[in-house]
Design a protein around this nucleic acid. Structure first.
Lengths: 123, 123
DNA sequence: CGGTATCCTTTACGATACTG
DNA sequence: CAGTATCGTAAAGGATACCG
C-alpha cells in the first residue's frame, strides 16, 4: 500500500500540490470567487472575469469540475445553455480564495506604499 | 486624478491582480506558509520547500519583499547569513494562504474521489 | 452558445556555472 | 552561504478559425 496519509504541500509530487495549484491558479481563483455569488453561464463568466480567453476559461472550468469544485449543467436546448455552479466542496474552497482576494483588494494601498519604499531604497 | 479607489480583481489591469498573483503563485504560497511557523535562512527555505530552484526562490522572495510581505535581514558576516521573516502584513497574507493549503491537504481524498467519478463517466 | 483545434508567442521554470 | 547570469526547454497563454 502506498503512502496515502498525511498529504504535505511541501513535498514535491504530493497530490495536494496539484490541487492547490488548480485552486490558486490565475483564473481558478477568479472563477471560484465569481461562482460564490451565483451561478454563471460560460459567456457570462467570460465577461465577468475580465481578460480570460475562451481557451483558458474552458480549461480552468474543466480542472475545477474534475476536482469536484464546480458543477456543470448543460441543458440540451438550442442554442446551447450551460450553467456553472459550485459544489459544497467548491463552496468551501471559494470562500477561502474569495477571502484572500478581498483581503488583497483591501490591502492594495499598503502594498503600493511598500513597493515605493522598496524601490526608493534600491535605486 | 486617476482611479485609485475600489480595486477589483475582476478587472484586467487592476493592481490587485498582480498582488494576488504574487501571493497565490506556485512558490509564493509555500514560502508564505513556511514563514508563518518561523523565520528561515535561504538554504533552509530551499530545502523546506521541496523542488524549488535557487532562481525561483530568490525571485519569489524578492517579489514578496517588495510587496511588503517578507522582511529580509542580511547580516554582514562571513559566510553570509540572510534571514527571511514575515512582516505584519505578510503574516495576514500567510494566514490566509496557509489556511487554504491546510484545507487542501485535508480534502485530498474528496478530490481524488471526485476525479475518479469524473474520469469514470467521461470514458 | 459553448465550446474545440490549431498555431504561434511569451513567460515560467530548471540546470548549470559563476561571484562576493 | 546566498545569491546572480546565462542558456535552453517546457508550459502557459492568446488569437483565430471552425463545429455541434
Amino acid at each position: 500500500m502506498t503512502q496515502t496519509l498525511m498529504p504535505d504541500v511541501n513535498r514535491a509530487g504530493c497530490p495536494s500540490r496539484v490541487i492547490l495549484e488548480h485552486v490558486t491558479s490565475r483564473w481558478g481563483v477568479l472563477v471560484l470567487a465569481a461562482l460564490l455569488e451565483r451561478s454563471y453561464r460560460f459567456s457570462e463568466l467570460r465577461r465577468h472575469v475580465d481578460g480570460v480567453s475562451e481557451k483558458m476559461l474552458a480549461q480552468t472550468l474543466q480542472a475545477l469540475e474534475r476536482d469536484g469544485f464546480v458543477l456543470r449543467d448543460a441543458q440540451p436546448v438550442i442554442p446551447p445553455r450551460v450553467d456553472y455552479s459550485l459544489t459544497p466542496l467548491g463552496e468551501e474552497a471559494a470562500n477561502l480564495v474569495a477571502g484572500l482576494a478581498r483581503w488583497v483588494e483591501h490591502k492594495v494601498p499598503d502594498v503600493q506604499a511598500a513597493r515605493a519604499a522598496y524601490d526608493g531604497t534600491k535605486v
